[in-house]
Design a protein around this nucleic acid. Structure first.
Lengths: 227, 227
DNA sequence: ACCTGAACACCGTTCAAGT
DNA sequence: ACCTGAACACCGTTCAAGT
């Protein structure tokens, strides 16, 4: 145990891929996708760009690693629930909240698909799908549908949050969109005008859960449990 | 009728927002999102950047306009089908194919949400949802779920196509991913390994349709038609 | 009203040089 | 093996000037 082993907490830590990814997540959270710059990252880590490129191949890889870190954390806890349905619901909601908290993640996820991160989600959902009694030869298809819905809904929710900006008032935003819908051309948008009020009053999280339930009900309807 | 009224087809046409958007779509199709540059656009239209900025506020607006143009074209034809379900299926498949043909569109769509383009899709789907006999107070929720699924599935499909690149062989790609899945850690990815073979043999378009059917079955299960 | 094109600020990435 | 920092090529956007 030399003196060097005692490191005072404020001292500059050695650079590492882990620290870089962590810093990247922080900057993305704080300022969105436009906020992650090698210049800014360089300053925050008190190095030159070359140091970062030693640990990370390029910006794309860094974004992928940041995304994977967030998703892995969201999936870390075993989802609780009495039934497979409840566990899918819990897993889905955990992802939804993670994407909501880090709303740059959604765009990354829908742009990477069969890459590193999606298999994590696929595996988590798939285990419960198989436990629901879906016939074996439908496992891939059904799991894909659930994952597609989760990512699609999360992405659109995040997109709304991004338009909104960090400080804005949600109720105000919904009211504004709702009013805009009411003013659409009645010839082209008769349906949308009809639901403008429902749109104003809806709750994103609840709506997402309703969607999950609807998809799960579809699974049961198309593949009734044996018996 | 002056001489000027006769314009030979090959002569340089006046610049217009329409021509700019059209050129942008062409460049995005040819070279993906990275291929749309004001420099390249400037060259293609034989002008300076200032000319383009006269008609279009910035790159974001140009991308949104290009996206809207593609989606509007895909939705132009009244979807055919005997039942509301069939018409939803037709509409969804039209969108799926459009996103597949212009695979930069998906990322744009999931990043714009309640903006200009999504209401078009929402309206198209919603009309048929209401015709399915879903109770009025559920129209917004149910339509949202269908739209979220369509956009989510289309986005992930486009992401796969992008990784693949324009010239690549699809079967080869699926085989590679399938093999990668088979080599995953059995402790962490038992389910994914099990469906690796199904993944290799699946058809994207058919899988999408199965997903739509599953969602539609869910709607009927949760909201049985009155009677 | 519409277009030109030089210029500005900023970006991701590279690389010779250091330790 | 790991880090430094100047330099390169390229980007979106602006704007004074033209017609």
């Amino acid at each position: 145990m030399s003196q060097q082993a005692r490191r005072s907490p404020r001292r500059t830590e050695a650079l590492s891929r882990e620290r870089i990814v962590e810093a990247a997540v922080g900057m993305l959270d704080a300022a969105g996708e436009g906020g992650l710059t090698f210049r800014a990252l360089t300053e925050r880590l008190a190095t030159g760009p070359g140091a970062i490129y030693w640990h990370v191949a390029n910006k794309g890889e860094l974004l992928a690693a940041a995304t994977d870190a967030v998703v892995a954390a969201a999936l870390a806890a075993e989802p609780e629930g009495a039934s497979p349905r409840d566990r899918i619901r819990a897993l889905a909601l955990g992802l939804f909240d993670a994407v909501d908290a880090h709303n740059w993640v959604a765009a990354q996820l829908s742009a990477s698909s069969w890459q590193v991160t999606t298999p994590r989600i696929f595996e988590g959902v798939g285990r419960h799908v198989s436990a629901m009694g879906v016939p074996r030869e439908q496992w891939f298809t059904v799991t894909s549908v659930v994952v597609q819905y989760i990512l699609g809904a999360a992405a659109q929710n995040a997109a709304n949050a991004q338009v909104l900006g960090p400080g804005a008032d949600r109720g105000e935003f919904l009211a504004k969109v709702s009013t805009a819908w009411e003013e659409l051309d009645p010839d082209d948008y008769s349906f949308t005008r009809t639901v403008a009020q429902q749109m104003r009053e809806h709750d994103d999280r609840q709506q997402f859960l309703d969607g999950i339930d609807l998809v799960l009900a579809g699974i049961t309807a198309v593949h009734p449990p044996a018996g």
